[in-house]
Amino acid sequence: MLPHHMSAKLFIKPPFCEPAEFIPLFHRWIQEQPVRGLLIDVADYRHVHHGPGVILAGFEGDYALDFRDGRVGLRYSRKRRGWRDETGQTDSERLRSRLERVLKHLFQAATALEAEQTLSQPVRFRTDEIELTFLDRLQTPNTRETLQALSDDIVATLASFQPDVAVELRPTSLDERHPFTVSVFLSPAPELRTLS
């Protein structure tokens, strides 16, 4: 069970600035490259209700000021298949390594965002919850079996960022049509700087 595409999202604490402010911000990020990966362009989907908001489209993956489910947050979605896994790894090791890379991208971008001075309201993230979505219905259908199969690897990956944290997983939907998504609750909530 080794998905190609996956995403991770951190939620933003209120109060929150105007989403339009992210358009020039993400354009500047393309110029200054404060985050990982090849960045291509900015796509504005603020008009889509509870949609992907403002996307900083990249080659390996996209960053987005994301509004899905009506919850604002920063999301990193890994889109590209070519993971360059190390040879000799088991699927479980590969999954952990992929997940770790996705989370590193997210945490680094979140840290960069919290450091931004140009927004009308500073951005602050909640770190007690991370939403993971596995965008690969063939490898990871939205079922209890998938949850069972992936749980240990998800917990182990999160523990690698913060060893003394308690990790609890809750699937967000049991509708098999939706991508397999789990809310990962961390207790106590770690500092963002320790995660990144």
């Binding site: 989907y45 949609g51 992907p52 996209d62 219905r137 049509r177």
Partner: peptide, 15 residues
């Protein structure tokens, strides 16, 4: 429509 939604999720940007 559901399949196109899945494709948008997995291969595009969800739109």
């Amino acid at each position: 429509l559901e399949v196109i939604a899945d494709l948008a999720d997995e291969y595009s940007n969800g739109v």
